[in-house]
Amino acid sequence: MDLSAINPVLLFASLMVAATPVLIAAIGELVVERAGVLNLGVEGMMITGAICGFAAAVTTGSPLVGFIAAAAGGAGLSLLFALLTQVALANQVASGLALTLFGLGLSALFGQNYVGLKPPPTARLDIPVLSDLPVVGRIVFGHDPVVYFGLLLLVAVWAFLKFTRAGLVLRAVGENHTAAHALGYKVVRIRVLAILFGGACAGLGGAYISLVRVPQWTEGMTGGAGWIALALVVFASWKPWRVLLGAWLFGGVTVLQLNLQAAGLEIRAEYLSMSPYLVTILVLVIMSGHRSGSPGSLGRTFHASQ
């Protein structure tokens, strides 16, 4: 085994890239769940975002337009979920699962003509001097803009939930929708907005996979990242910073296990390959302890008559 082949700086830089899609999707889902809605359709919205973003970027030649289209695509699909669960009062679990299946099929259909194409490259940030600094340069200043966007989004969501009045209302709706309704808050409207935000985030996360991380279009290319994002939210006890920790752990172990395999570590490759899932869940479960902290109205259907 030759561990010296592993460069810790590059490892950390790669970890941030590998974590970004799940991180962005998980932040969106966190807001949705804090509003009391369980949307299991993250995978479907991610893959829809992946193809919408890819198609738009290839057509216009601009990655930025691609990411905007991805957010719109993800939000568009989530609107369907919002209609089903908030207006038609359908079961959230069933609707979410249906959304995933629908998204996978829809994206495969849209994607037929985009196979084998290359998207325009998303430029890495290149700040003179700063990006050339040893260690810090590559880790802190050497990424594409989406990585920073993901981190900013996390800070923004954390601050929104913790410090703003709107954030408090959103949490109130999630904790007890009847009480929130009695206080005069528009439960359905707030939830629909949260669902749309979640959809847009999932779409962005998906587009990051198809436009930056891979970058190309293949059916089913999100490969379960949406389910990881969902699991992260739960195991992170609905707390933004723990979502970041979970995403980095997941990304970190994913990248690390590849590095260890490539360096010829004498551990069976099967164990290494399942390690990202095991380690992430284990750490977050231990951290969350006995307090589950799930929003009180999570997954429950709300109707003003109740």
Binding site: S14, M221, G264
Partner: peptide, 20 residues
């Protein structure tokens, strides 16, 4: 250096492996 992915097709994993 050999990396086993235990899948025939998973572009994200393949890309990560190649980059590693």
């Amino acid at each position: 250096s050999v990396i086993w992915l235990f899948t025939w097709l998973d572009p994200a994993k393949e890309a990560d492996a190649a980059r590693t």
